[in-house]
């Protein structure tokens, strides 16, 4: 918020005084997610005035961009929303794959299902859904969704599950041997029964759990890697597990809005964030990984070898990139989710 105000003020000054900058760039991004240092660097390098505006959910961003008249050039939707943005005609086919810094993009992030070959989008940050466990309470294997679905006695009653339907459903489906977005009734029945049975051992289904993990109110739970890492920095007993049967991987991606006013600056920006030193600035700020090869050496020391963003190869292979499930799957998941919380 403060960031936005500062940049808005700067932008206003630029308009008021003789416009000294080459041009402008309006970025629409998740709150507390854009490195101010990186923006400053971009402004200086290209003599562009940048304005950053926040949103709090993909749905908010989608609704606002769809409504038009927003004046934004760059938007940063999650992978699950990129196909919706594209099919609604909201993104420009800006061909990042022909840009100079495209060579830095990690090959595993090039042919993604939500934007094969990267004709529209560039990686911003990516993360995983896994298990946060206080290892002083439970010393067993934490790389399994059994932590919250078949909880060991030590953890019962001290588990938090983030109330994010798709993340929790997906992890449970993989644990029961199902595929992403499955509509297989046998699997889903098992998933439902397992979730309903496990719920009695959960303490809460809540966001904002960093403090509670750090202080010991919670001992385990379904969580995001960045949040888990922040809890570990306050309490060294906290560890992050990657469920071996499969876990969701998400990526937020920068793209140019279809009716952008400052297309050239937006292209410069996409190319800019694919440079390793700039991508590293993003990670240092948001504490998640980026999709750019060679950025690690520019990262802060605590990020470089953080287990929360550097899984072993075996565990890394279990990650499943989240995609948008078809409405018929969504409908069943909502029914199960409602029954779980009734």
């Amino acid at each position: 918020m403060k960031l936005t105000t500062t940049f808005s003020a700067l932008a206003a000054m630029a308009v008021a005084g003789a416009a000294s900058a080459e041009g402008q760039l309006n970025i629409y991004n998740w709150g507390n997610y854009t490195s101010p240092e990186m923006i400053e660097k971009f402004e200086q390098e290209y003599d562009v005035e940048v304005t950053v505006t926040d949103y709090d959910s993909n749905d908010t961003a989608l609704a606002k961009i769809k409504a038009g008249g927003h004046g934004f050039d760059i938007v940063v939707p999650s992978g699950t929303y990129v196909p919706i943005f594209i099919s609604e005609g909201l993104l420009m086919e800006s061909r990042p794959n022909e840009m100079e810094n495209f060579k830095n993009m990690d090959p595993q992030w090039v042919d993604v299902e939500f934007d094969p070959g990267r004709n529209y989008t560039v990686p911003w940050q990516w993360g995983t859904v896994g298990m946060t466990v206080n290892t002083s309470v439970y010393g067993g294997d934490i790389n399994t969704a059994g932590i919250y679905l078949d909880p060991p006695d030590e953890l019962k009653g001290k588990i938090n599950v983030v109330p994010e339907m798709m993340d929790v459903m997906s992890t449970a489906i993989y644990y029961m041997g199902g595929e992403q977005c499955t509509t297989d009734k046998e699997v889903l029945k098992q998933v439902r029964d397992k979730l309903v049975e496990a719920k009695q051992h959960w303490l809460s289904m809540d966001y904002g759990n960093i403090e509670k993990f750090a202080k010991g109110d919670l001992a385990a739970g379904v969580n995001w890697n960045g949040a888990s890492m922040r809890a570990r920095l306050q309490n060294a007993d906290i560890a992050y597990g990657y469920p071996i049967d499969g876990y969701p991987v998400w990526m937020d991606n920068a793209a140019i809005v279809a009716d952008a006013q400052n297309v050239e600056n937006a292209r410069l920006f996409l190319n800019f964030i694919m440079a390793p030193e700039n991508a590293a600035m993003l990670s240092n700020f948001a504490k998640y990984a980026n999709g750019i090869v060679g950025s690690a050496e520019f990262m802060d020391a605590d990020l470089q070898d953080a287990p929360e963003i550097n899984p072993s190869d075996e565990l890394k292979a279990a990650g499943v990139l989240s995609k948008t499930c078809p409405p018929e799957a969504q409908k069943i998941y909502t029914a199960i989710w409602t029954e779980l919380q009734k």
Partner: peptide, 20 residues
């Protein structure tokens, strides 16, 4: 703790993740 929904939360679910 969000474990048990009330009406307000159920309605929110339909406009959010439930997409109904």
């Amino acid at each position: 703790g969000g474990k048990q929904l009330m009406l307000g939360n159920l309605i929110e679910l339909q406009f959010g993740a439930g997409r109904n």
